[in-house]
Amino acid sequence: MLIFTLKRLVSLLFSLVAASVVVFFVIEIIPGDPAALMMGISASPEAVEELRQQLGLNLPIWQRYFTWVMGLLQWDFGISYTYKTPVSDLINDRIWVSLPLTIYALTLSTLIAFPVGIIAAANRNSKTDVGIMGATQLGIAVPNFWFAMILVLIFAVSLRWFSAGGFPGWEIGFFAGMKSLTLPAIALALPQASILARVMRSSLLDTLSEDYIRTARAKGLSKRQTLWRHALRNALIPVLTIIGLQFSFLLAGAIIIENVFFLPGLGRLVFQGITQRDLIVVKSVVMLLVFAVIVVTFIVDIAYGIADPRLRGNSVRGSAGE
């Protein structure tokens, strides 16, 4: 398991280097002059030149790349052109909204999906199963911004349990902060939970038809015991894959929900960066998201190894014959 982890770690480092090269070159090199692009068509040549100086665009390309990477390592992303403040400050503010929101939503989604998926699989083709499958279908089909608005109408406007939007900051306390993230987290979790529950169900059903489940039954385990002791862990691999993908998606893909609830998250920051052509912000946030995705993939890989010993790889082979 240690060698497996180290191997994954090495591949993680290679992925990060490769990703930084791609992000840097795609945004910085092609097409045209970043400075001109950032200032728009009407900018005077002098202003563009000044920006080029400021951005260090006149330096050789490899030097710019290394300066950028060294900056990244020190959490220094440069100065935003539109906000005129360090990008790291912008990110620091937002990541403490986006990250907790993502984890909150993902936890909710997992907590809903696991029992729902397991119940559906254990009672295959029963009324419960059909009901659950119908409900998850609906959960996937309903647009989450619409669901978010319904949540606001019920819980914020009518019942006044939650505020309709905005984020007061963590200064007011952990629970108060979490409370203001609750409605957006539910809105984000619903479709994810629906997808995850369906994956859980079908994966479990596949596993339940395996030969070793029959062996377990022949040992004297009841249906329920077989499910918990033998099927569940084997069914986890596809579920873990989906959870990993959902984390990456939620971290940056929550723009619409952030807008509905007026949350200062990373999604909105990227969106503003793109519309205002602030390439420094875009580049930094994209790199940060890539970093997050790669780290999550690494964690999921390790989780695979824990769930399934065959994937650890460095195993002793049995002698082929006897």
């Binding site: 029959r214 062996t215 022949a218 033998h230 862990r233 399934d308 065959r310």
Partner: peptide, 17 residues
């Protein structure tokens, strides 16, 4: 406990994890 059973496919009759 009283009746044991063995199946044909040894490759898939054991839980891999």
């Amino acid at each position: 406990s009283e009746i044991g059973m063995i199946f044909q496919e040894p490759m898939s009759a054991l839980n891999p994890v």
